[in-house]
């Protein structure tokens, strides 16, 4: 799983850290949110849509994404 926080937009409100049903996000020594356990993510997507600055992106790993074809 590839989690990306766009640091240029993030205001460190910690909502993702507070609401994640697992503990994907942690706070570093300066109290800033970072992605500590991406492997614990079960793709609920809540951090992404609750983020007030819309700065979280979660893209499936190539090895883990579902197979979907185009109907041609």
């Amino acid at each position: 799983m590839s989690h990306k926080i766009d640091k240029s937009k993030c205001i460190n409100c910690k909502l993702c850290y507070e609401r994640c049903p697992e503990c994907v996000y942690e706070l570093d020594e300066e109290g800033k949110v970072y992605v500590k356990r991406p492997e614990a993510c079960w793709l609920c997507g809540a951090c992404r849509f609750d983020c007030p600055k819309n700065c979280i992106e979660i893209i499936y790993d190539a090895s883990a994404k579902p197979v979907i074809l185009k109907n041609e």
């Binding site: 799983m1 049903p21 697992e22 492997e39 614990a40 993510c41 079960w42 793709l43 609920c44 499936y60 790993d61 090895s63 883990a64 994404k65 579902p66």
Partner: peptide, 12 residues
């Protein structure tokens, strides 16, 4: 399977 890496169901 919700966690595709660990073939894990949800955290619940």
């Amino acid at each position: 399977t919700t966690n595709r890496n660990f073939k894990h169901p949800s955290a619940t």
